[in-house]
Design a binder for these strands. Structure first.
Lengths: 214, 214
DNA sequence: TGTATTCATGAATAAAGGTTCATAATGGCA
DNA sequence: TGCCATTATGAACCTTTATTCATGAATACA
C-alpha cells in the first residue's frame, strides 16, 4: 500500500511533467510548438504515453490553459476582494494583470491573442470569461458604492476586459521590447484608461499600486 | 477584343461568385463550412477551379475578410471624418459598428470572435488593426480639440476597439436573441462606455446618432 | 474549320499531425 | 523467483482537407 502510493505519485509527477513541458513549449515559441510528439519528447515520455494522461490534444491544452489561467484569475480575484475602493481595486487589478502579462510576454501573448487552432481557441474563451467575471464583481461593488456609473455589470466587465486585453496585445507581441520602465508606463496607461470608463465624474486621480506577486 | 472582354468579364464574375459563396458559407454557419470543396460546389465550379482564382485557402479567406471588413472600416471611417465633435463621432462610430454587427450577427461573430484556423485568424488581426487605426485618428482629433484626455492615441484606440469588440461577442453569439430594442440598448451601452474612457470630465451626455447605412 | 491557348474538371495525391495498439518493460506481490 | 497488472513505447495508422495535374472542353482567331 505504501509502495502503491509511490507509484501513484509517479503518475501524478509524469502528468505534471507533461503539462509543464506543454506550457514551456508554448511559452517558448507559441502554438507552433504545441505538437504532441514534441511535448512528449520534452517531457521525456513516449508520444503514446501522453494519451494515458490526456484524452486528446485539446484536453491537454485545455488543462495547460486552466493551469496558467487559474493563477492569473486568482491574482485578479484577490485584488477584487481586497480592501480599498472599487475604483482603486479595479485600477490595481488591471495594472497587476498587465505587468504580469508583460513579464511572461510570450506565454501571455499565446494565451490572449496568438492565432491558434480552434479547439485551443475555444478553451481560451473560458479564461476570458472567468476574468470578466471577476471584473464584473468589482463593477457591481463599485455601482453599489456609487463609485461607478450605473450600467449592466456584465457589459461593463466585458468592455473593461476587452479594453485592457486588446491594448496589451501590441506590447505583448514577441518582438516588443521588454523594457521595464516603458512597460510600467504602458501598463499604467492601460489600467487608467480601462477603468476610467466606469468612473462617475469627477474621476478620482488614482495611481496604480503594484500588487504583483510571484 | 470585344469578345475577349466578355471572357474577362466571365473570369471576374466567377471569382466574385466564389468569394460570395465563401462569404455566404461563413455567414451561414461559420468557419466549419469554410472548406474549399464545399465553397466550390456552392459557387458552381469544380474544386480545382478555385485554385485558378486564389493561391490558397488562406488567400481566399483573406480576400473574403478584406471584402467584408473594408466595408465596415469604411463606414467607421466616414463617421470619423464626419462633422461633429470627436466625442459625438466616437460614440456614433461605435454605436453604428455595433448595430451593423448585430444585424449580421453570424458573420460578425465569425469575423470577430469565432475560433478559426490560425491562417484565417492572422488575417483577422489586420481588420482589427485597420479599425483601431480609424479610432486612433479620432482620438488624436479629440485630444487636439481638448475633448479627450491626453494619452497615447494608439493605446487609447486599442482600448476602445477592444472594449466594444469584446462586449459585442456575447450579443453576437449565434444563440443570442436578435431582439431589436434590446440590441439597440446594448449597442448604446457599449458605445457609451467604450467612448467614456477618453472623455475629459465632466463628460458630455451623448445620445448616439444612428448612422447605419445599407 | 483548324489550331493554339486558355480555362474547367474532379479524382488522385500529399502532407501533417493526432491517435492507436501490439509489444515490451516495469513494479508489486506471493 | 515467477506471475500478473499496470504502464510505457513509438512506429504505423487514420483522418481530414488542401492542393495538384492529366485530361477534356471552350474560346479566340486565322
Amino acid at each position: 500500500m505504501a509502495i502503491a502510493a509511490v507509484r501513484l505519485n509517479q503518475l501524478v509527477e509524469t502528468k505534471a511533467r507533461i503539462l509543464d513541458a506543454a506550457r514551456e513549449a508554448v511559452a517558448l515559441s507559441g502554438w507552433k510548438d504545441a505538437q504532441i510528439a514534441l511535448i512528449a519528447s520534452r517531457a521525456g515520455v513516449a508520444t503514446g504515453s501522453v494519451y494515458r494522461y490526456f484524452d486528446s490534444k485539446a484536453d491537454l491544452y485545455a488543462q495547460v490553459l486552466a493551469l496558467v489561467s487559474e493563477r492569473e484569475v486568482a491574482v485578479v480575484a484577490a485584488i477584487v476582494e481586497a480592501e480599498g475602493s472599487a475604483s482603486q481595486c479595479l485600477v490595481d487589478a488591471i495594472y497587476t494583470f498587465a505587468v504580469r502579462a508583460m513579464r511572461g510576454r510570450r506565454l501571455a501573448y499565446a494565451l490572449i491573442a496568438e492565432p491558434c487552432e480552434p479547439e485551443i481557441d475555444a478553451a481560451r474563451l473560458k479564461y476570458r470569461a472567468a476574468l470578466a467575471d471577476q471584473i464584473a464583481r468589482l463593477v457591481r461593488r463599485g455601482i453599489a458604492d456609487g463609485e461607478f456609473v450605473e450600467i449592466d455589470a456584465n457589459v461593463a466587465a466585458s468592455c473593461v476586459a476587452g479594453a485592457f486585453m486588446e491594448a496589451l496585445v501590441g506590447p505583448l507581441a514577441p518582438e516588443a521590447a521588454p523594457d521595464s520602465d516603458a512597460a510600467k508606463a504602458i501598463a499604467q496607461a492601460i489600467a487608467g484608461l480601462s477603468a476610467r470608463m466606469l468612473f462617475r465624474h469627477p474621476a478620482p486621480e488614482l495611481t496604480p499600486v503594484s500588487r504583483v506577486s510571484a
